[in-house]
Simulated assay, not measured.
Amino acid sequence: MMHAYFSDDQLRHHGKTFIVAGEKKPIPEVPERADILRTAVSRLGLELRAPDDAGMAPIAAIHDEQYLDFLQTIYREWREAGGSELVVPNIHPFDRNGPYPRHHTGKAGFHLGDTSCPVSETTWHSAYASAQTAISAARHVRDKGAHAAYALCRPPGHHASGNIAGGFCYLNNSAIAAQELRAKYDRVAILDVDLHHGNGTQHIFYDRADVMTLSIHADPMDFYPFFWGHAEETGAQEGHGFNRNYPLPLGSGDAVFLEALDRAMAAIDDFGADAVVVALGLDASRDDPFGGLAVSPDGFSKIGEKIGTLTCPTVIVQEGGYVSSTLAENLYQFLSAFGVTNKNTTLSEGPK
């Protein structure tokens, strides 16, 4: 049976509000998301295991030292300077090629790409625990010979680049998991099925040939993150890039999404992936408050079934999916169709 991982420390962060079309609105990335998703895991008969603490090294393999220091220290620095209860940027650099800022306001603008990633006193604790959840799932597959593992990551991660937070994401859990798998597997693919393009993941691996990034998402011409996620972004390896984007028209439902998934699965096969990370967003749901795509619960079942045909080791990392009437059902349908209870638990004998 698949192992699943979660830490209660992941519930400590709550960003509260962000700016949408000039108005302050509640952030939908709330601790309640994790509680709802846990009901689906329980319904599947899986035990949520507390992750081990692997320390900073796996996180530092993806994220810059300055950025990690910022996430751990900016709240105290901001508050001591008289700042508000949440660290929220009010200015951003034209580019990030100049000297690193000394002032707390400059640091916030440098590292926080939009207003959806406020930093509170507890943000680092939750982001760190979320990354450890992904690391434990990856190591269960990598070191124990397991076929698959699920990381209930919250906050999510796929919008975070090496040194910039964005879209509710602080540490890129899927990228961290993929790098962990690279210690054993020569070629790793990250298949992102979130409503939003995985721009942080793309940025981290864009010039690499050992990790393929694939993202199925609402068309960024009309939807967050707006600036990235176009089909022509194929990677920096000239003539042999390993990034694939599948932007879908707003409102697309099951059939359109599944056709794009077939193309992504074929690309993974052509790449010859030895292991796969699934960045599992559930916000493509027709019931999700973001409303960008219209995948049904049955559609998530079919997505899980298709991805479950992968014969290589697979780490499923939770990304988006916000509070709705079908959030738990969508996760249940995906994981049950993927085969959490009927696949062989190991690919080969490994350390117990």
Rank of each mutant, 00 (worst) to 15 (best):
E305N: 13
W228Y: 10
A279M: 03
H159P: 02
F334V: 00
Y128H: 02
A165Q: 05
S126Y: 13
V141H: 09
I135W: 11
E32K: 15
A134S: 11
T122D: 12
D186C: 12
A328F: 05
S116F: 01
V30S: 05
N243Y: 00
E232M: 09
P313L: 05
W228T: 15
T309Y: 01
M1S: 11
D95S: 11
A131R: 05
D298W: 11
G167W: 01
P289S: 03
K107Q: 14
N97V: 15
V30Q: 14
S42H: 13
E329V: 09
T346A: 03
V256N: 12
P156M: 01
R12L: 15
Q72H: 09
T314V: 15
A231L: 00
Q66P: 12
G15E: 12
P93T: 13
D53E: 07
V87G: 06
S285K: 07
H158P: 07
S285D: 03
Q202M: 01
L195T: 09
A148G: 14
I164P: 00
G82W: 14
D9H: 14
P26G: 09
H125P: 02
F338D: 07
S174C: 10
R33N: 07
K144V: 02
M2E: 07
Q179Y: 12
P156H: 00
T311M: 04
W124L: 09
H217V: 01
Q237T: 15
E29Q: 06
A129Y: 01
M212V: 05
D219R: 00
M1H: 14
Q66K: 14
H217G: 01
E259T: 15
R208W: 00
